[in-house]
Design a protein around this nucleic acid. Structure first.
Lengths: 192, 192
DNA sequence: AGGAAGTGCGACAGCCGTGTATCACTTAAT
DNA sequence: ATTAAGTGATACACGGCTGTCGCACTTCCT
């Protein structure tokens, strides 16, 4: 997937970005929205969408690839300064919350597993966090896949939680996620 | 929604059941499967599907209604003999696992909330279980909606877990769900 | 300024799902 | 056994989305 295709003109490249952005927004509201609607939301024509992405499938894959890239960015940014594993999880959770607002559709598209489109690199990164949590005694569960799935599931549920929910009065959304996950995986969520 | 429509012939009634059953199976594999495929799976023609259900929408609603009924059945059966709240949750979880095998599509259709089609009766039933768990000191979280969502989310994740996963070596799927949920909601999951 | 790249517009063909209707035939009900 | 109900088969109209043209026009690049 390198820069094998000869480079696009500057405005054209910008338009592909617009399309991806518009697709993320429109598909989040309606997963079966037509390319027409996506193009419209991008201020472009359906024909142009087809010029950038040969098929609907190609557009979806590009969307998934973009999401995976954001995931690895989030993972890297969560690890700078070598904080405690719990702090890493907290930072990463906040990063994913931001992704939920812009890439909600793509996240449901790639799911929570390699088999469904989530990058192996991302999977490994998340599981590494839980390995560190385990080494630090924050959790007792030993299944990497299980830890990751519980985490992503609870993260998603918190995202669906209304902003004024009682659970969020004293702690942030990320803190609620981390506390719940550690509790679910056999830790002492109350300590901080 | 009573028996307002004059009663069908016996075989016709049986066919509606076949259609619902086939729809549950086919749509679980492909949520956007056509009525043609559903009818085929039921051993019937698309025309007959349309005779029983005026529109695709109507079929989906019937599917959701059937699921809600199974939910309340499961709730009732979980409460006979007045067992401990934890035991109630365990029984109900097992009932839902069975539903996952037959009504997977419908469950994702109705979601985890009244707003999306889950019956208020079912919501109240589930939240009642958690109120009892709270009264018994098994959990500390106080938000009914939050408890319910965490529960259904983790239940779903366990269902997705491969049957030979390490987490299931010493405890059943339902026990894994209950343990994880109680931990996530501020309890001591290790106790039996 | 000149040429190339990109876009808008419109049109077309193809496909698939939905919903309705008709008619001959089979089946349950009493 | 007779009657009404239900079904299969087939056809049709309708609408929507996809993918691909061609052509005139605008925009960037150098």
């Amino acid at each position: 997937m390198g820069t094998g295709t000869r480079r696009l003109r500057a405005d054209a490249e910008q338009n592909t970005a617009r399309i991806l952005e518009a697709a993320a927004k429109v598909l989040a509201a309606d997963p079966s929205a037509s390319l027409e609607r996506i193009g419209e939301a991008a201020g472009l024509t359906r024909a142009t969408v087809h010029r950038r992405f040969a098929s609907r499938q190609a557009l979806l894959e590009a969307l998934a690839a973009q999401l995976n890239q954001r995931y690895v960015d989030g993972l890297e940014r969560s690890c700078v300064d070598n904080p405690s594993p719990r702090e890493v999880l907290l930072r990463f959770t906040e990063a994913v919350f931001e992704l939920k607002t812009t890439h909600l559709f793509a996240m449901e598209l790639v799911g929570t597993d390699c088999a469904t489109g989530l990058s192996p690199e991302v999977v490994a990164g998340i599981e590494r966090i839980f390995a560190r949590l385990r080494a630090a005694g924050e959790i007792t569960e030993t299944g990497d896949r299980w830890c990751r799935r519980v985490y992503l599931a609870l993260l998603h549920e918190v995202h669906l939680l209304p902003g004024d929910a009682a659970e969020l009065r004293k702690r942030s959304r990320a803190e609620l996620v981390v506390g719940s996950v550690l509790g679910a995986l056999g830790g002492m969520p109350g300590q901080g």
